Simulated scan of single mutants.
Amino acid sequence: MGLKGAETRDRMLDATQELIETGGYLGAGLNQVIATSGAPRGSLYFHFPGGKDQLVGESLRRAGRTIGDTLEGLADSRPSVAGFVEAVLQHLGDRLEESGWRKGCPVATVALEMASTSDPLQEACSEVYSSWEEALRARLAGRPDADDLAVTVLALVEGALLLARTHRSREPMDRVARQIGVLLS
């Protein structure tokens, strides 16, 4: 694939991520992706012959890697696990607030809408969540309850994002950060 083709593909993935984050799977129609990305209709089927589910699945995985890279960067700058999770919540809260409370988790909406009806999207969502869980588990290495804590912390972060978006307030994230500090101490 040439540079122009890669750029077109990236624009479509960017547009899809934006649309699914703010409106979910159902809010990311193919016509909207084409209009938002400025890509020709034929490019959609050339780059994503599997259709919308392939496009959304790849967009979810890409967003998951972006968040994963952020987790790695934050892990390098925070010596304690509680400090790391607090920094993650701060980052995600900043992102959510800066978007006008429209961008919570890049995976959650699609997981809730489609995981029970689309195997490819369920797999994409599961892969992303598993990678984030693994990043948390790595920070908790050495603790006998690392597996349980990784799932618990991820669930608390996801719930905090949902509540913060719903209430349009950072308060749920701040409260969860404090309780995670207690849980991990």
Rank of each mutant, 00 (worst) to 15 (best):
K4A: 15
G5F: 07
A6I: 13
A6T: 11
E7I: 13
T8M: 12
M12R: 00
M12N: 00
L13V: 14
Q17R: 13
I20L: 11
T22N: 06
T22D: 12
Y25M: 05
L26K: 12
G27Y: 05
G29A: 12
G29Q: 10
N31E: 15
Q32N: 08
Q32F: 06
I34P: 01
T36C: 10
T36G: 03
G38M: 10
G38K: 10
A39N: 04
R41F: 09
R41W: 10
G42E: 13
S43F: 08
S43G: 15
L44K: 02
L44A: 08
F46Y: 14
F48D: 01
P49E: 04
P49R: 06
P49Q: 07
L55T: 00
L55N: 00
G57K: 02
R61T: 05
G64L: 00
T70W: 05
A75M: 07
P79T: 09
S80V: 01
A82D: 10
A82M: 05
V85K: 00
E86W: 02
A87C: 08
V88A: 02
V88D: 00
Q90R: 15
L92D: 08
L92A: 06
G93T: 11
D94H: 13
E97F: 01
G100A: 09
W101E: 09
W101V: 03
R102D: 08
G104Y: 02
P106F: 02
V107S: 01
V107N: 02
A108Q: 15
T109S: 13
A111P: 08
L112Y: 14
L112V: 13
E113C: 04
M114W: 02
S116N: 14
S118N: 09
S118L: 09
D119I: 14
D119H: 12
L121Y: 07
Q122Y: 10
E123T: 11
E127R: 13
Y129S: 10
S130L: 14
E133N: 12
E133R: 15
E134K: 14
A135K: 15
L136H: 05
R139S: 03
L140D: 03
L140M: 04
A141S: 14
A141V: 11
G142C: 04
P144K: 13
D147G: 02
D147S: 09
D147I: 05
D148G: 15
V151L: 14
V153G: 00
V153M: 04
L156E: 04
V157E: 04
G159W: 07
A160T: 03
L161W: 02
L161Q: 11
L163E: 13
L163Y: 12
L163I: 07
A164N: 06
R165T: 11
P172H: 07
D174H: 09
D174T: 11
D174K: 07
V176T: 08
V176W: 02
R178S: 13
I180S: 00
G181V: 05
V182L: 12
V182N: 05
L184F: 04
